[in-house]
Structure formats: structure tokens, C-alpha cells
């Protein structure tokens, strides 16, 4: 029973990772940029979600609004930070991205204070007993939302016009252009969707801990990078599998070897072990 519970907790944690990491792998797949600032957008999503919920009392409204605003924010980051330097070697956008992330953290601290904010009445705190486990509404909500959104994304990619256009642009932006696809519009959409997903992830996290802090993007900033490498750079399915796998590994690892290695050490040990066997990651990426 304990093992089952640890496993489920691992999947819950993993679905949180998935919502953040997918946006990162989408950007890498399209532009080969390590979009560290993504973690700042994740934190922004958490802040907006909390503030709107506290102001209006509606979590649903907060989620939609926050996702929209952060989606636009992601597009803005692309336009201002990445588009001007796309032709430079890859470490240039990476450094710019890190700079944006650090700036965002400090802005959060200056605007919202270093103490962090809490919900007036956190939603989804009621407990549900499922399969003999005591789970909170927010945990179940997060897993379901992750499945729905990521499932929707997959459907979009496979079955719609825009999905095909996106896949074409990932494969070969120049040729995609010559078939009438505006690569810039595809990029905007890419950032919009990835950032929106991260915002939703940020809101669920804040519900689970009832806390948003300026540094809440700190761990996702590097953890998500590890996850997309683990899953195969640019491979969305791989990222999802890697996220869940990592969640489960951490869940067991922190309990049984937690006195020797902390959570991050366990995560990176797992990453290194996998890469030694399969250097390209679990699935082949771009």
C-alpha cells in the first residue's frame, strides 16, 4: 500500500513537472534555445493566479486569465529577447534567457515582497478518497488538467492544420516558409501555448503549498532542463514520460536514500544513469 501511495505521489509530482517541461521542450524543438526564462513565466503564472483568485474568488477565472496573460508574456519574451539574436551562437540566447529569469525573480521580490503570498481561501483543498488514498482536490485536479491539456496538445499537433504547420516548422523552417507557413506566427503560438501551460502548472503548485514566492521558479529553472534532456531534446512525448518517471524516482528516492542524497541529487543521479545507457535521452529528440 505504501509503495502504491508513493508511486501515486510520484505521478502527481511528475505531472507538475510535465506542465513546466513541455513548454521548454516545445521551444527547444522549434528554436534550439534553452529557454530558462520559462521558469520565470511559470512563477508569474502562480502569482497572477493567486492574486486573481484572491480578488475575484474564482479559481477558474484566475487560471484562464493567468494562462492568457502569461501566454502573451511568453510571446513578448520571444519577441524582445530571442528574435533579435536568433542568428547568434546558442549560448547567446541562453545567457539572455538566464538574465531575463534573474530579472523576473527580482521584480517579483520588489513588487510582491520577499515573504511570499498566500491564498485567502485556497480552492480544491477538500480531500477525496480514491483507491484507498487520501488525495486533495488540487492534486487530482492537477493530474487531470495535465492529462487534458497535454492530450489536447497532442491532438492539436496530429490532427489540425496548425499542428501540421508546427511540425513542419520544427522540421525545416525554411521549407515550411516556402509552403506558405509564417514561421514567426508559428513561433508566437509555440511560446503562447508553452507559457500558458507553465502558468497553469504554477497555479496548481501554489494551491498545493498555499504559497507563491519570488524564487519559486528556481528549481524548475534547472530541473526542467534536466527533464527535457532526459526525455530527448525536442520530443514532447519523451518529456512527458521523463517528467513522470522523474517524479516517481524522486518520490521513492527521497524516502529511502534521502539521508544520503537530497531530491535534486537524486534527480541528477537518475539523469546521469539514463544518459550513460542512452545518451540521446529516453526518446530520440531533434
Amino acid at each position: 500500500m505504501l509503495f502504491f501511495e508513493l508511486f501515486v505521489q510520484g505521478l502527481i509530482h511528475g505531472s507538475m513537472y510535465a506542465m513546466i517541461a513541455v513548454g521548454l521542450t516545445l521551444v527547444y524543438g522549434l528554436l534550439r534555445i534553452l529557454h530558462v526564462a520559462h521558469a520565470g513565466l511559470f512563477a508569474l503564472g502562480g502569482y497572477l493566479g493567486l492574486l486573481i483568485t484572491n480578488a475575484t474568488g474564482s479559481l477558474a477565472l484566475a487560471m484562464i486569465t493567468s494562462a492568457l496573460i502569461v501566454g502573451l508574456g511568453g510571446m513578448l519574451v520571444y519577441r524582445l529577447c530571442y528574435q533579435p539574436i536568433l542568428d547568434r551562437p546558442p549560448y547567446v540566447p541562453l545567457i539572455a534567457s538566464i538574465g531575463v529569469f534573474i530579472a523576473m525573480e527580482e521584480v517579483f521580490r520588489l513588487v510582491f515582497g520577499p515573504y511570499g503570498l498566500t491564498y485567502n481561501h485556497p480552492h480544491l483543498q477538500s480531500q477525496v478518497t480514491l483507491l484507498g488514498l487520501n488525495l486533495r482536490g488540487a492534486e487530482i485536479g492537477m493530474v487531470i488538467t495535465a492529462m487534458v491539456l497535454l492530450g489536447g496538445l497532442s491532438y492539436l499537433a496530429q490532427n489540425t492544420r496548425i499542428g501540421i504547420a508546427w511540425r513542419a516548422t520544427v522540421d525545416d523552417p525554411e521549407i515550411a516558409e516556402s509552403f506558405g507557413i509564417d514561421a514567426v506566427k508559428v513561433r508566437y503560438l509555440n511560446f503562447f501555448i508553452g507559457s500558458g501551460l507553465a502558468a497553469v502548472g504554477g497555479i496548481f503548485i501554489s494551491l498545493l503549498s498555499n504559497l507563491v514566492e519570488p524564487t519559486m521558479g528556481g528549481v524548475p529553472a534547472y530541473k526542467a532542463l534536466a527533464i527535457i534532456v532526459l526525455g530527448g531534446l525536442g520530443n514532447v512525448k519523451g518529456t512527458l514520460v521523463a517528467s513522470l518517471a522523474l517524479g516517481v524516482v524522486e518520490a521513492f528516492g527521497t524516502i529511502y536514500i534521502g539521508s544520503y542524497l537530497d531530491r535534486d541529487a537524486i534527480a541528477f543521479a537518475f539523469l546521469i544513469a539514463v544518459l550513460m545507457i542512452r545518451p540521446q535521452g529516453l526518446f530520440t529528440g531533434r
Partner: peptide
């Protein structure tokens, strides 16, 4: 039992499950 956690952790799902057990 004694369990350790990192100052960066905010989600304690697996820890809570084990403590309950």
C-alpha cells in the same frame, strides 16, 4: 524514523505518505 528534506522542497507528498505509514 528520521527523514531529511531540502530547503527548496515545497511538495512533500511522498514524505507524508511514508510518515502516515
Amino acid at each position: 524514523n528520521e527523514y531529511e528534506y531540502s530547503i527548496k522542497d515545497r511538495q512533500f507528498g511522498s514524505l507524508v505518505a511514508k510518515v502516515k505509514a
